[in-house]
């Protein structure tokens, strides 16, 4: 599926045209085209092996590829160093040198990124909650702390673009929530983001647009709230109702043609994409009190 190329070229931060990458006979990315506007958060979503990481690495020109990638008006092949100065990268595999401390790591990458002498690291460390760990060696850090360090390194030169490869893959649920909160605040501050993920909740929490990849090809380009509709997914709603409300609720929803059945303390409804709210609204309008609900 080709991206809409009629956007104003000035607002386009990332332009990917016919990106193709082969590893031997295996095609990891197949004729992928899309654009990302300034301040937009775009998710590359798909199963393992869908080509997400390969596409991300191509953005950084980490290996040869076919097609064209232009970032902030620069060709990534011809101006790869300049392009990388515009990008903060958070990798999937946290590959720091284990014998360096957090402080040494930050200073090393700050020098490579030409961060001016006298740069105050404190606000950055505070932002990613790393201040208490600054003297620790990398080998002593948990996955969550390493991920925050990777984000701190990515933000060192305050780049306008963040490229994140499965940024929460190695995190537990709590660390993932904290990390997503950090990313949302960065998005609000105006950063353009492109990130790969196979977690739907991560994609819906952060992305303005979702690019679904399958077998290296772009299958769907959609805002996250229209994803279910575009994919034709059906959601099961479990509604917990008072005993006297169950029978009227069954009759009301059956009357609207919705597949519904009794389920323990309430009812189970199969809702078409975009119809979950309608189920709740209809019951409320019929005077049936919904005590609680869960989505499957």
């Amino acid at each position: 599926m080709a991206a809409d190329t009629r956007d104003d070229p000035i607002t386009l931060v990332i332009e990917v045209r016919h990106l193709t990458k082969h590893f031997g006979r295996f095609t990891a990315v197949d004729d992928l085209s899309f654009t990302v506007k300034a301040g937009e958060a775009v998710a590359l979503w798909g199963a393992n092996g869908a080509g997400k990481t390969t596409a991300v690495r191509c953005l950084l020109n980490l290996f040869p590829f076919e097609g064209e990638i232009v970032i902030n008006g620069m060709d990534v092949r011809r101006q790869s160093k300049e392009v990388r100065r515009q990008i903060g990268f958070v990798p999937q595999e946290l590959s720091f040198h284990d014998d360096m401390t957090v402080a040494e790591t930050l200073i090393f990458y700050a020098r490579l990124k030409k961060v001016p002498d006298g740069f105050d690291f404190e606000p950055l460390l505070e932002q990613v909650h790393l201040t208490p760990h600054v003297k620790k060696r990398i080998g002593e850090l948990s996955g969550g702390l390493k991920q925050r360090l990777a984000l701190a390194v990515a933000l060192l030169s305050d780049p306008p673009i963040l490229v994140l490869d499965e940024p929460t893959a190695s995190l537990d649920i709590r660390s993932r929530e904290e990390f997503l909160f950090l990313l949302r605040s960065l998005k609000k501050s105006g950063k353009t983001m492109i990130f790969s993920s196979h977690h739907l909740e991560e994609v819906t929490a952060l992305a303005d647009r979702v690019l679904l990849l399958e077998g290296g090809r772009l299958v769907v380009d959609s805002p996250p709230d229209q994803l279910e509709r575009r994919l034709g997914w059906e959601t099961t709603l479990h509604l917990y109702l008072p005993e006297e409300g169950i029978e009227p609720a069954l009759q009301t929803l059956e009357g609207l043609g919705m597949p519904v059945s009794r389920n323990g303390r309430g009812i189970r409804v199969h809702a078409a994409p975009g119809n979950k709210g309608k189920v709740l609204r209809v019951l409320q309008e019929s005077g049936i009190n919904v005590e609680d609900f869960s989505v499957e």
Binding site: R57, L60, L62, S80, K81, E82, R84, R85, I87, F89, P91, E93, S95, F96, H97, Y109, L112, K113, K114
Partner: peptide
């Protein structure tokens, strides 16, 4: 093998 090469070359160096 450690993956540090990918990360290093994702920085603005050739």
């Amino acid at each position: 093998e450690k993956g540090t090469l990918v990360y290093l070359l994702a920085q603005p160096i050739s």
